[in-house]
Write a protein that binds this DNA or RNA. Structure first.
Length: 603
RNA sequence: GCCCAAGUAGCUCAGAGGUAGAGCAACGCCUUGGUAAGGCGUAGGCCGUGGGUUCGAUUCCCACCUUGGGCUCCA
């Protein structure tokens, strides 16, 4: 065993394999212990709960005496005390004791969280591991660093209130997040990386690139600027075109429904607190802004006689939805109240489910490939609170799982994370600081059609209840654009870029040069290219180029007298993303841009 | 909703118990320039909102709103 690791204990869970080397997780877990030791010294009477290593670093949860809270300044105090403890090279000492003994020990220390953890252990656990770091004692399996001298490169990051055991009905504890590295350079790199993430932040780029803004006049509802709308409409065009190829029928259903509709669907019972209610001058009827499209599509299907010959019917609608999200949860474009889903509902027979879901997974993969992103798939299974029979859930879950496996997709299973009416496949993406967000979703539903009394006439002449597949592939346009902005760091591929080509005249007061620039713009516009001429007066050519670069315009063309004199229609083209600069005939440039757009090249 | 922060010019930010500043952007004039910021000038602020303390509050205190980082939630 390496001598900088202290052995793991044999208990408090199954024995861990002794690692061959000191890993970052061990270092960080040890740092969590050291932080708890510092907190207990600085705040006598503080109780400590749990403190694991995480992907980014570590945390520890505390209850401070008299219900006190940590404030940000406390972090530097705690960090300073940790440095002192590190300097003293205090050994991490392991001890194994009986469960009863450990319970007494923590009981005497008035560490009620630890006592609770011991009480919750299974009967088969007879002994537990204890680690001592100086006076600090923790219940722990280890392993740990040999002594605190290894914990010099530590940084505390933030404080947060967290519910005990992750349940909002419980009291809130104080959590301190931190991180630790082996070397100072690694910590510096970590900090530099956070800076880079800040530069990619879609809220920052949204302002810089003039895509959208948020206003306190309507929290959670973005205002889309002309540049942002170009991206928005390009994605709308994309989903329309691709839907059309796959036999979807575009429909439009109301934004406002009476509350009874949501009682029928079950949403009122499950999500009443997130629904915006609207009053009408007609007393007696209360309305609500639609938080999802399903009920509208159910009513549409139910508005006429349906035959098995018509199925599957695929209704598509990219509609505005409103959800009254809890105030603390709003987050730029990634979590909004005004949400626009590229929604669709497929009404089909049991026999058609497999094909439909396969087609959808394939469709999703096609779309994401065009966007140049790779989502992670998640299969969410039956939740505790649900409608329907176990048999229906068995069939629905296996249909989704088979589709994933049939396409050779990697996926994780999220037990209990399905909706109240059915299981789902979710497609997740990561934002600039590594948080995961759901984009697409495919949900299988045996419940809502029967709640709405839907039926179709089968080949046997009898009424049958259709199955519904709910799906949104981009997810919400808001979130999708937010994620794409961060994914490309604002350098959108040509087909999505708000301005695709900026034409910079060298001499902006020479009519022939400006005229040429404008004629180039017209040639490009005729070819469907979004081109602009940078002809704001009083600006030098260099400044214009710089503006185009900071606006991340994919192509910048500079034209001047020299080009006119040559008269060969060859211009100088800068490719912002490739970082190249070359001379090219105008026709060639236009052809190249047309191809990039048509093929939706996302390099 | 809960814990911690932040809200000052269009943007990025400085400031201080005596009534507000910079850079960029905007506007005007000058500059006629060949590949990432030419010069000078002008205008621009209910210092998030509402209370309180004070002779005086943008500054201190309280509440609320919005935004950010977590937690919880996410059809």
């Amino acid at each position: 065993m390496p001598d900088d690791i202290v052995d793991d204990s044999a208990e408090a869970g199954p024995p861990l394999a002794v690692p061959a080397e000191l890993t970052l997780d061990i270092l960080r877990h040890s740092a969590a212990h050291l932080m708890a030791a510092a907190v207990v010294e600085l705040y006598p009477g503080a109780e400590y709960d749990v403190g694991p290593a995480t992907e980014e670093g570590f945390f520890y949860n505390f209850r401070l005496p008299d219900g006190a809270h940590f404030v940000e300044e406390d972090l530097s105090r705690i960090e300073a005390r940790m440095r002192e403890l590190a300097k003293r090279r205090i050994p991490f000492e392991r001890e194994v004791m009986s469960r009863d003994e450990a319970r007494r020990l923590f009981s005497d220390l008035q560490q009620t969280f630890k006592v609770d953890i011991i009480d919750r252990m299974g009967d088969e656990v007879a002994e537990v591991g204890i680690y001592r770091t100086g006076d600090f004692i923790d219940l722990c399996r280890g392993p740990h660093v040999a002594h605190s001298g290894r914990l010099r490169t530590v940084k505390l990051l933030r404080v947060a209130g967290v519910y005990w055991r992750g349940d909002e009905r419980n009291e809130q504890l104080q959590r301190v997040y931190g991180t630790a590295f082996f070397e100072r350079e690694q910590l510096d790199a970590f900090i530099a990386q956070r800076e880079e993430a800040r530069r990619r932040d879609h809220r920052r780029l949204g302002v810089e690139l003039d895509l959208f803004h948020l206003s306190e006049h309507s929290p959670g509802s973005p205002f889309w600027h002309p540049n942002g709308m170009v991206i928005w409409n390009t994605l709308e065009d994309l989903r329309r075109e691709e839907n059309r190829k796959r036999g979807y029928l575009e429909v439009k259903t109301p934004l406002l429904f009476d509350v009874d509709t949501y009682k029928t669907s079950g949403h009122y019972e499950n999500y009443a607190e997130n629904i915006f209610f609207v009053s009408s001058r007609d007393e007696g009827t209360q309305f609500a802004l639609k938080p999802m499209n399903c009920p509208g599509h159910m009513l549409l299907f139910g508005s006429g006689m349906r035959s098995y010959r018509e199925l599957p019917i695929r209704y598509a609608e990219s509609s505005t939805l409103h959800r009254d999200e809890r105030s603390g949860t709003l987050h730029g474009l990634l979590r909004v109240r005004h949400i626009t889903q590229d929604d669709a509902h497929i009404f089909c027979t049991d026999d058609q489910i497999q094909d439909e879901i396969h087609g959808m997974v394939e469709y999703a993969n096609h779309l994401y490939a065009m966007l140049g992103v790779t989502p992670r798939a998640e299969l969410s299974t039956r939740p505790e609170k649900r409608l329907g029979t176990e048999d229906q859930w068995d069939r629905a879950e296996s249909a989704l799982e088979q589709a994933l496996q049939g396409h050779g997709m990697d996926y994780v299973i999220s037990p209990g994370e399905g909706t109240f009416y059915g299981p789902k496949i979710d497609l997740h993406m990561t934002d600039s600081i590594g948080r995961s967000w759901q984009m697409g979703t495919i949900q299988l539903d045996y419940q809502m059609p029967s709640r709405f009394g839907l039926s179709y006439v089968g080949a046997d002449g009898q009424d049958h209840t259709p199955v519904v597949i709910h799906r949104a592939l981009l997810g919400s346009l808001e979130r999708c654009i937010g994620i794409l902005t961060e994914h490309y760091a604002g350098h959108f591929p040509l087909w999505l870029a708000p301005v695709q080509c900026e034409i910079v005249p060298v001499q902006d007061d020479a009519p022939e040069v400006v005229g040429y620039a404008h004629s180039l713009r017209e040639v490009m516009r005729a070819a469907g290219i979004r081109a602009t001429v940078s002809d704001k007066p009083g600006q030098r050519m260099q400044a214009r180029i710089r503006d185009a670069m900071t606006q991340k315009v994919p192509y910048v063309v500079v034209v001047g007298r020299n080009d006119l004199e040559r008269g060969d229609d060859v211009v100088n083209v800068r490719s912002t993303r490739a970082g190249t600069q070359e001379n090219m005939a105008v026709a060639e440039l236009v052809a190249r841009m047309e191809r990039e757009v048509a093929e939706r090249i996302s390099t």
